[in-house]
Nucleic acid binder design. Sequence first.
DNA 1: CTTTTATCCTACCAAATTAGTAGGATAAGT
DNA 2: ACTTATCCTACTAATTTGGTAGGATAAAAG
Lengths: 141, 141
Amino acid sequence: MKFNTKTRYALRTMLELALNEENDEGVFQKDIAENQVVSVKYLDHIIASLKAADLVENVGGKKSGYKLTRLAEEISVYDIYRAFEDELAIIDCLLHGGKCPTKHLCVMKDYWTGLNQSIRSNMESMNMKELANRHISVNDK
Amino acid sequence: MKFNTKTRYALRTMLELALNEENDEGVFQKDIAENQVVSVKYLDHIIASLKAADLVENVGGKKSGYKLTRLAEEISVYDIYRAFEDELAIIDCLLHGGKCPTKHLCVMKDYWTGLNQSIRSNMESMNMKELANRHISVNDK
DNA sequence: CTTTTATCCTACCAAATTAGTAGGATAAGT
DNA sequence: ACTTATCCTACTAATTTGGTAGGATAAAAG
Ligand code: FES
Ligand code: FES
């Protein structure tokens, strides 16, 4: 029961972009890589997924920095999770009307569904603006 | 972000035992295996872990059934999870005073800590008696 | 206009984890 | 004596994870 490292790096990447929301020049991949202590090459994959999910974009052409495609406030933790994974389904029985392999009705399914929903709601209700604000208030002390 | 199948099978196994709490003869492994559509051999591992975690015990000697070691009410979903995994830590930064690899203070850690706590509380607050009751009320309709 | 550099894109890969199977020992019941 | 259910240890195939490597492309710097 772990989140993968890509999602974690992606969140910190998005946090940097959220902190630079006002910066029209965007942020360079290599600067992010340095701050996050991750190779530029690895960050390549992460940013590629974020782009594919339409969460970030280049400011200009090939050698330009990155910006968020929308307001940080409108990007949730779950949005970022979704750039790397399918819809949250903590067990397979919850997938696409997935059925339980058991003979009889499985009462656990209701429990899993509730837990799944709770985790998802938590991720949906936290946005990057809020995280950026927290970051500022912590680092200003 | 998935729970493993062992935990899932274990929960259903424990549910069967909870439903047979009053049955002094215990429940046989092979009967559980049949109900859960899982090989007896695989269930071997699952039950071994449950025993190691002191959640179930044999009623008698070698060929006897299993019973819960405590009241179903006193066994939480998290107890069962813990029979197969270490303390819940949805990212490694949360482990044993684990530090973040970042240069600066990582504000994400507070978020992860909160989510981790929320998931854990959810699992801790559901017990096998409650699940057994739900099972009965669903299957009696 | 040449060199550098940052993004882009596709392969590949080693290690770890998952979800089991296999084989047999032990001991109780028939 | 035979069957059978639990117990115990190894092994393994498939998948996932967490990356690295190589090079193409295009912009900017000199
Ligand atoms: S078997 Fe599907 S949730 Fe229990
Ligand atoms: S790096 Fe540890 S939680 Fe962000």
